[in-house]
């Protein structure tokens, strides 16, 4: 039991890290807290479902189209809405939250709920890991999660546009002075965050059904991981994902499954009360206020 909890906790933690990566990437670069993240996640899942089941496109084409559409959606959100309220944080939050709500509730209004809304797995089958049988889809999620985190690290540390991303993240004023178009980079940051939301969606939804509620759950999980890890810190995010992931898995195994949903909000409250900049956050001004 204990060993299987360890294995399942590991997978759950990677899933959490995966969904939080996109939210965190966008915030880390452009300072935009994209509360439409859950909406984008469900948008990716349902557009993939529509491409597969209504348009009747092949699986891989549908997945790629849905990821592209979600990224474009993210870019358009920045260009047409966020750019106008840039720097006014409350407006950014209200705008993105409103878009997320609109997307999710529009899908609900159109009737996209029920057990028939599922995505096929990438690979069938399962393997034995130590004492527990794990579906290959879950193993794929772990591989995708690790590859994406590694890819983002490589991108931001070893490519020119990645360097520009880090420049904007550190000081938008200086970046502008050095000829970087900060709105363009911020558009890319929201688009890339949306790409990650979409990749997580098409990887994770096959584990269950596509439900509107998952949009809200994913947003809360992404927020919990980012707040605990410290907004914008990728290393902190991974550690936070493991803390929350294992807490959830142990809660499910040793207390009761119904308490799992309480873990993210409780841990958000605890961290905000004790260390508001997160475990590894760089927003020191928050520390000084406490």
């Amino acid at each position: 039991m204990f060993l299987s909890t360890i294995v399942l906790g590991f997978i759950n933690s990677i899933i959490l890290a995966l969904v939080a990566l996109g939210f965190n990437l966008t915030f880390g670069i452009s300072g935009v807290a994209n509360f439409a993240y859950g909406g984008l996640y469900v948008f990716a899942g349902l557009t993939a479902w529509i491409f597969i089941n209504i348009v009747k496109l092949p699986y891989i084409v549908s997945i790629l189209l849905s990821i592209a559409a979600t990224s474009l959606f993210g870019a358009l959100i920045y260009r047409f809405i966020l750019q106008r309220v840039r720097g006014i944080e409350l407006s950014e939050v209200i705008a993105t939250f409103g878009i997320g709500l609109a997307v999710l509730e529009l899908f609900r209004y159109l009737g996209f709920y029920g057990f028939e809304y599922t995505l096929p797995v990438m690979f069938e089958g399962s393997i034995n890991l130590f004492v527990v049988t794990v579906s290959i889809q879950r193993v794929m999620i772990v591989i995708i999660g690790i590859a994406l985190a590694g890819g983002i690290w490589f991108f931001t540390h070893h490519t020119k546009i990645g360097l520009a991303f880090r420049g904007i993240a550190q000081d938008e004023y200086t970046a502008l002075t050095l000829g970087i178009d900060s709105d363009f980079i911020a558009t890319l940051s929201v688009a890339f965050g949306s790409t990650i939301a979409a990749i997580s969606a098409v990887a994770i939804f096959p584990l269950g059904t596509i439900s509107i509620e998952q949009g809200y759950v994913v947003l809360i999980n992404a927020l919990a991981v980012s707040i605990v890890g410290g907004l914008g810190s990728t290393g902190g995010l991974i550690i936070a994902a493991f803390i929350i992931g294992y807490l959830q898995t142990f809660t499910s195994a040793y207390i009761d499954t119904q308490w799992v949903m309480f873990v993210p909000p409780l841990i958000i409250l605890a961290v905000l009360a004790l260390k508001p900049s997160g475990l590894f956050g760089k927003q020191k001004e928050l520390e000084e206020r406490v």
Binding site: K160, L163, A164, R166, G167, Q170, D171, Y173, T174, A175, T177, L178, G179, I180
Partner: peptide, 23 residues
Amino acid sequence: FQMVKPFYQLAAYKNLIIPLCSQ
């Protein structure tokens, strides 16, 4: 800038890679 504005987390020479990459 009067109050210097480097990219504090980057190495000094990396601060110059960004302008050197500019259009």
